[in-house]
Structure formats: structure tokens, C-alpha cells
Simulated assay, not measured.
Amino acid sequence: MELTTVWFSLIAVLWIGYFTLEGFDFGVGMLLPVLARDDTERRVMINTIGPVWDGNEVWLLVAGGATFAAFPEWYATLFSGFYLPLLLILVALIVRGLAFEYRAKRDDDRWRRRWDLAIIVGSFVPALLWGVAFANILRGVPIDADLEYAGGFFELLNPYALLGGLTTLGLFVTHGALFVALKTDGEIRHRARGLALPAVGVTAVLAVAFLAWTQQQTGTVGSAVAFVAAALALVGAGLAARAAREGWAFLGTFVTIALAVAGLFLALFPDVMPTTLAGGTSLTTTNAAATSYTLGIMTVVAVVFTPLVLAYQAWTYWVFRKRIAVHHIPAAPAPATAR
């Protein structure tokens, strides 16, 4: 297998890791005003992802870095053409990270509500725009003969891309609801489980429509198999949630997202950014790749360090595997009285 194919596959794995892990982070953030009734319950929900959210974002950083090093033409065209949506995602992620860190810095309800809003918006924007971005990559964008993006921002807001955004939004909300049901106890757990059932139904409709449209446009036999398996996994997640088997239900949405993303990359290969212009040039794993020497060095580094990163993240999830309930949250400190 050529190194360009190896690194295309590794980048696909990195995006799978990012969406399956950060996906429930986004879902928890978006569901903060829906599942929590007071500040203590909001703290319970935030604490379910508190030890892992920043580690989950490492997958995005590595995916971006790997794309820059392995396929520099892909990286350059993607970031110049998708500058505004990627900037919005970046700002949203920064604000969301600040909210997690600063929410508890002051004992003031208004202060906490503002940071809660930052968490909600900072989760919603990437959950929607990542789907829009990936749908446009699959659909193709105007790339000229010089491998430069020749379109505008509003060309990215086409019906297919918007459906892709709604699909990722629905998947992440469902994934997050099942994660909350898996990681909490008491009333929040029951609310999350109750919300997960209708969320699975709505998401299934969106996902089937988007994946079928994708298969019709650029699909292969491999992508068709992945998409069908993803749909079956989502059905299994719904059945498990109905039977109150939160662990199996969460695994179902995890597998659904993983198979759906894998299918998208299978449908894209060997292109990395197809063009919609008659005289344009599509970016492929061949003409967008770095030199063989660069790819060879990167492969050695990946073989050495990837198992270490995976082992550390698995250990983190194992350490923080227990459920969280309201009685685990300490009372907020009383405001100091003037003497």
C-alpha cells in the first residue's frame, strides 16, 4: 500500500476518533439547558465531560497537523476556501474551552449563566458546521486548474451541506444524551434516557437521507456497506436505550458515527477535495501529498507515539468511569459577609 493511501486512512481514523469522542462533548453542551433544572444539575453534566473534553480535542489538533504535513495542498485549499466556517468553529471551540475553565471562578448566578450560554453556543456551532464542511468536501467545490478555491462563502450553504450539518447535529445530540444517561444517576439520567429515544428517531431520518444522498452522488461498494452498518447500529442504539441499557446504547451511537465517517472517507477516496469546475483540477491523494521522504518519517513517528497516546486516553476514561449524581457535587461556598 502506498504511503499516501496509508496517511489518507490514518487521517480518516483521526477524524473518526474526534467525532466519536468530541461528539458526545458537543451533545452534553447543547443539552445543558434541556436536561438540567438548576445549577447543581448543570455542574453534574459539566463534570461528566470535565476530565476528558480537552483530551478529546487533541484528535482534532492531530488531524489538522497530519493533514498539513501529509497533504499540504489539501490543507491550503481547505483552509483558504473554508476560511469563514473554520474560523467560526475555532472561535466557538475557544469560547467553549474558556467557559469550562472560568464558569466556577466567581460565585455569581449571572456569571455562571453567561458561561453556560458560551458552552451551549460553543457546542452547537461546531456540531452544525463540521457537517456542513464535510458535506461540501464530498460534494465538491470550485477548485481551478491552479488548485485554488474559486468560490464564495454562500456556495457552501447548499441543501446537501445543510442536511449534512443537521445530521451531525442530530447525531451529537443523541450521542450526548446517551452519554449523560450512562454517566449520571437520578433524575438527570431518566431525563437523558427519555430524550434519547425521540432523538434517535429524528437522527435516523436525517442520517438515512444524508447517507443515501451521499451514496447516490459519490458512493462506492465500501461506503454502501459502511452506511448500512451505521444505520443498523443506530437502530440498535435506539433499541438498547428503550431497554434502559445505556452502555450498549452509547456504544451503538459510537459505532454509528465511526462507520458513517468511515463511509464518507471511502466515498471520497482517492479524491481529497473534488472540483465542480469543468476546467478545474480535483485534489487527490497523489497531487496533494507531501514527498515520500516526509511521509516515511511521519509514519515512523506515528508508529511509535500513537499507541502511547491511545493508552493514556484509555486510562483516563477508565479512571473517570463511575457515575456522577447530585449528591456528589459539593455545595457552593457561601458569600463572605462584611464585618
Rank of each mutant, 00 (worst) to 15 (best):
E246V: 00
P85C: 13
V173P: 03
A207C: 03
G29K: 03
L166E: 05
L32Y: 01
V202K: 01
W213H: 11
V326N: 02
D144S: 08
R323S: 08
T253N: 07
G164Q: 14
T77Y: 12
L60P: 02
L10V: 14
G194E: 11
T256K: 08
A133V: 15
L197P: 00
W111R: 02
N56S: 06
T275S: 14
V235F: 13
R112E: 08
A302D: 08
A226F: 10
A70M: 12
P198G: 03
A332F: 02
A325P: 03
Y160N: 08
A133P: 01
G194Y: 00
T184Q: 01
L14R: 01
R37C: 00
A338C: 03
A290P: 04
A209V: 15
G170F: 11
V225R: 05
S80D: 09
P85K: 12
N56L: 05
T286D: 14
G201K: 12
L147M: 14
V300E: 08
G236W: 04
A196C: 03
I46Y: 00
F154A: 13
A278T: 14
N56I: 07
L206Q: 02
A66E: 04
V261F: 05
G164I: 07
A244D: 13
L3G: 02
W111P: 00
Y102W: 14
G17K: 01
V141N: 07
T256E: 09
P274G: 08
L84D: 09
N158V: 12
T299G: 15
W15H: 06
A302H: 09
L268K: 06
S223M: 10
F19Y: 10
A278E: 15
L182R: 12
E41I: 00
T284G: 05
L295R: 11
I324M: 05
L157Q: 06
V208F: 13
F68Y: 15
T184C: 00
R42S: 09
A226N: 02
R113V: 05
F265R: 07
V309D: 09
G186T: 00
R339C: 03
